[in-house]
Every structure is written in C-alpha cells, then in structure tokens.
Amino acid sequence: MAAAIKLASDRGVSAIELVFARNLFSLPVVATWLTLAPGWRAVRTRRPLAHLSRAGLGLGSMTLNFIALAMLPLADATTIGFSAPLFATILSALVLREKVGRHRWLAVAIGLAGVAVAMRPGGASLPAAGLAIALAGALGTGAVNITLRQIGRTEGVAATVFWFTVISLAVSGLGLPFFAGSHDWQLWALLVLIGVSGGCVQICNTASLRLAPVAVVVPFDYLQLLWAMLFGWVLWATVPGPATLAGGGLIVASGLYTVWRERQLHRSHLPATPTEL
C-alpha cells in the first residue's frame, strides 16, 4: 500500500484524494468480509461517538502518513513510522493503565534512540518538514492503536472497521472537489490497489489488537522495513543509507526484545510441564 501511495503521489495525486481512494476501494473488501463472516448485524453500535472520534484520529494520522510517504524515501518514511508502536506502548501505560515493566521501557528507549538515528539529526539531506510530518503521523498511529484497544472492550471488529471506513470516506469526500484530478487507467489501478490492500490490513490489524496486548502485536509492523527496502530498490533505485539501517536495526531490536520478553512472561504463567517438574 505504501509503495502504491508513493507511486501515485509521484504522479501528482494529492493526499486528500489518496485518502479518499484508500477508503472508497477498501469498502468493497470490508463489505465482502462482512457478508461472508460476521454478518451485517455486527456493525450495530451503541457507541457512535466513540467511532466518530476514532475515525477523526485515524483520518488525521492517515493523511499525515500519506504526506510523509510523498516527501520521504519509502524506507525512511517506513523506519520513522516504526515509532508508532513505541508511542502505543507509552500510551498503553498512560491511558489504558496496562502494566509495562522495566524491560519493555528499556525496549522503548532503544527504539526511540533508533528513530533519532534514522532522522539524522544535524546533517541530513531529508527534508525537515517531511521528518516532522512522519513523526506526527507515527504518534497519531500509536494513539489509534490505543483507541482501538479501548473501543474493542465493547465493540466488535466489524463495527470498528465498517464505521471507520464509512466516516473517513464521507469526510475525505468533502475535499475531493478541490483536490481531485483526471487519471489514466494505470493511476486508477494504483488507487484501487491502495484501497484493497488498505482494507485487508485494517481488518487484520483491528482484529489482532482486540486479541492481544498492544505491545505484543505492534512489533510485527517492523517487517515492513524489509518490504520497504525491496520496493524502494526495485521501483525507485534507492538504497537506505547507514543512518536508516542503523536506526531501523535499533528499532527492530527493541521490537524483537519486546516479543521475546512477552513470551518469557507468558511461559512463566503456564503450568509446569512434566519435563519442568
């Protein structure tokens, strides 16, 4: 999805139109999933205001992330976006009162150090505005993860995904008359790809955050770096610099350490097996 967004933005598509396409073409994916799996009754909600605030937060962070992809190389934008799970872990302790031990705080500190390295303070060729927008988008994404966790206590995955898509589509559509342009079939294909892939990942991400703690789920986002490097090399002939690789390595290390630590804690709460007795 990120690669398609960058390709489309390189051809002049505005962030508002990208956001609209993301929601428009993801709606058939969501509708098909609703029809085949939970059913349309699952979109009923008793908390419409919660979905409205979640949609506003998600729409804002999505727009910022799309702008960052247009301004930065794919691998760099992805690396800075990795600070989202770090922010989510911090917010999970502050907002949800989830227990975050010293090991996880250490992982957060290492990850934030990696983000600082990747942003190349003091001397980089990357635009400062793009870096700031990417970081703001990551903070917004982390806040969205926390909001999903809160809504998931009373609302199902179907309702959360459906209402976000519908509300975001309606709001972004208001700006379409001012930002839309004419496109050839290749550009339309990119816009469809953005929406379809976005709909699929939204369903999976929302479901995973209802089934496991935030700090356990979000480190798997780090696999995006491998794909970002590959797409950046194939499509734009760009290779990440030493700062991006070093910063990304620190962030990935912090995420893997978090996953390992959670597994150790989980094992310590399981009944002993015969070989452990």
Rank of each mutant, 00 (worst) to 15 (best):
F164C: 04
I251R: 14
K6G: 06
V144R: 11
S125E: 09
L176K: 04
V166M: 11
K6W: 08
N205W: 11
S172F: 00
V239D: 11
V157I: 14
M229K: 12
G142R: 01
T244G: 12
A143C: 03
G181H: 06
S83C: 06
G130N: 08
W236T: 10
P271M: 06
S197D: 09
A93M: 01
I146T: 01
Q264C: 15
L270V: 07
W236I: 04
L209E: 03
L94S: 00
G58Q: 02
H269V: 14
Y222L: 13
A70T: 08
V108I: 09
T147A: 14
A3V: 06
A129L: 13
T206L: 08
F25R: 05
A143L: 04
A75C: 13
I133G: 04
T147Y: 05
L187D: 05
L52N: 02
W188S: 00
H266M: 15
A113R: 10
Q202M: 09
R261W: 15
A138C: 04
T79H: 14
L225E: 11
A31Y: 00
W188C: 02
L106A: 15
E17A: 09
L135T: 10
L265P: 06
A243L: 08
V117E: 13
V43C: 10
G111R: 10
L135Y: 11
A3L: 04
G175E: 03
A228K: 13
A253K: 11
M62Q: 07
G12F: 00
A180S: 05
M119L: 14
A132G: 10
V218M: 14
A243H: 07
L250M: 15
W260S: 14
V196N: 01
F25N: 07
P127C: 05
M229S: 15
A243I: 02
L250V: 10
G81D: 11
C204I: 11
G181K: 06
W236S: 07
L139M: 08
G123E: 02
T35E: 11
A246H: 13
L74F: 15
G60E: 02
L52H: 04
V100F: 06
I80M: 11
P85L: 07
W188P: 05
M1F: 12
T35K: 14
L112K: 09
G181W: 01
L86E: 04
V217D: 08
G198A: 04
I146Q: 00
W236R: 07
S92L: 00
W33N: 08
T244K: 15
A116W: 10
I146W: 01
R54M: 05
R153A: 05
I151W: 05
A113P: 10
L91F: 13
V201S: 13
A212V: 07
V218P: 01
A189H: 11
G39N: 03
S14I: 00
H103L: 15
A84D: 03
F220T: 00
I151C: 14
H51R: 04
L86S: 04
P121F: 09
L52A: 14
A3Y: 01
